[in-house]
Amino acid sequence: MVTIRDIVEAVDAEVMCGEDLLDREPQCVIASDLVSDILCCREEGPFLITGLAKIQILRAADMLDLVGICFVRGKTPEEEIVDSARQLGLPVICTSKTMYETCGLVFKLGAPSGVYIPPSGAE
């Protein structure tokens, strides 16, 4: 299984909070900058890769019980975000790599992709 610590090493990330939680093993990994897209994940224990370093992401993280978040493209989250993550018991890591490269490296580690099931709309 892949741990968050493995991801930190693979994408050369800085750990913003949750140093004691890096041995968590994400059940799946999802990547998106859209909150509603993230909420389409139906699996337990997803790890999120995102370029959206905003407080709204933390709310979505809370809703889905994410196991960890990686902010990409050198986005440094504000203290408020890190504080909220700490309260939620959520490790936050940051990498200067792009979304594409980060996803590629994490995929190479063998972490499974989350299944994306979009809503079907009106009948």
Binding site: V35, S36, P118, A122
Partner: peptide, 15 residues
């Protein structure tokens, strides 16, 4: 820009 407005709000609720 805040990550909202993807047009999936109501569909996600229904789903």
């Amino acid at each position: 820009e805040m990550g909202f407005g993807a047009g999936l709000g109501l569909p996600n609720i229904r789903e």
